Simulated assay, not measured.
Amino acid sequence: MIETTAQLPRRADSVPDPTEQPWQTEASTPWTAVVRRIRSLGADTAYVLVTLPWSLVAFVVVFTGLAVAVPLMVFWVGLPIAAGVLVVARWFASVERSRTVRRAVLAGDLPLAEPRRAAAPGRGVPVGADRPSLPRRVLASLRDPQGWRETVHALTSWILSIVTFTVTVTWWVGAVAGTTVYAWVRFLPENTGNDDLSGAARDALEVLNSTGFKLAAGIVFLLTLLPMTRAMARLQAGFARTLLDEPRTVAR
């Protein structure tokens, strides 16, 4: 019997299912499911690991710009500098959206939507026509709420990324080190410092240091690696969605 991955035929009068995924095929082999899970695990891991250094760069650049702009606002010089900081924060947000979209495509989640922005004064004005003055354009940029949301994301994303990065690395190290314990445990020095402990504490420490316990812990880490990594990636992407996604208006 030859398995096929062609999509099921659709009736002419049927209504398309919005929840149907491109990989929902007529016959999906176990191998294709494994490939999807590995691809999703790689996308989530790469997204979380890259977010920490990238968010630190965004924080340093945006915070430095604001630290220069705020004291100079008393001389009105800080206003154009602050507007430039918002432009830089918009660029960082654009890169974060593209990273989140790429991760969502591989992991099967919803990507971020590019927010609609009000047209800046002077944009689209024909050549030779009167353009708004520079102060007006600067003030219009500073009144953009989405620009400040992107600035807040650049200033705070690193805090959450420390947690997601640490948990993801811990699970990967625990899974790899635990499941390969028999390959490296022989090279560890013998623990001879348990003689000073009481009987119960010494027995508990021997259990924790045993090869069987390390292997069992590694299996637990391995079995929970995919859902834990997915949870960390969704937590990081959810934070970005809160500040960088198109704001939703609630109908009354």
Rank of each mutant, 00 (worst) to 15 (best):
P189D: 08
T164D: 00
D196F: 14
T64A: 15
G122C: 09
P189T: 08
F59V: 04
S94P: 00
L205A: 10
T242N: 05
I81T: 00
A120K: 03
A27D: 14
T249N: 03
V50S: 12
A240E: 00
F59I: 03
Y182I: 08
R149F: 12
P227I: 10
L79A: 02
V181F: 12
D144S: 04
F239R: 09
R37S: 09
E96L: 01
P111N: 08
S55Y: 00
V167K: 09
S98Y: 13
F165V: 10
T192M: 10
L86C: 00
N194R: 15
V181I: 13
V125R: 13
V15Q: 09
Q236M: 06
V74T: 10
A46C: 11
T180R: 08
V169I: 14
T45E: 10
R143P: 01
D130G: 13
R241I: 02
P22H: 03
T32I: 12
D44K: 14
V207F: 11
S98K: 13
V61G: 11
T151W: 03
A154K: 01
T4H: 12
V220R: 03
L52R: 09
I162K: 04
L225D: 08
E20G: 05
N209R: 15
L244P: 02
A129Y: 05
L41T: 11
Y182Q: 11
R230G: 08
L197T: 03
A83Y: 01
T192I: 06
L215C: 04
G124C: 00
D130T: 15
E20Y: 10
S161P: 06
L142V: 08
D130V: 15
R143K: 05
W184G: 03
A69Q: 04
A237P: 07
W23C: 01
T180H: 03
L49C: 02
A233W: 09
V125N: 10
W148R: 06
F221T: 07
S28W: 07
P111E: 10
V176H: 07
V62K: 05
E26A: 05
W91Y: 12
V70N: 01
P115C: 00
W31N: 12
N194P: 07
Q146I: 11
V88F: 10
V173W: 13
E96C: 00
V57G: 08
A201H: 06
A89Q: 09
M228A: 07
I38W: 14
L52G: 11
V68A: 14
V70C: 01
T164L: 01
G124A: 01
T211D: 09
V127S: 11
R117E: 02
S14F: 08
L188G: 04
L188M: 13
S55V: 06
P9K: 09
V181Y: 11
A140N: 05
L79F: 11
G199T: 15
T156I: 01
S98T: 10
I159Q: 01
P9F: 04
L106V: 10
L208Y: 06
V15S: 08
G178I: 06
V127H: 13
P247K: 05
Q146L: 13
R234K: 13
G218V: 11
T19A: 14
A240D: 01
E96K: 04
R143N: 03
V152N: 04
G124P: 01
A120E: 04
V77D: 05
R202Q: 09
T4M: 10
V62Y: 05
R99G: 01
G212D: 13
T32V: 14
S14A: 15
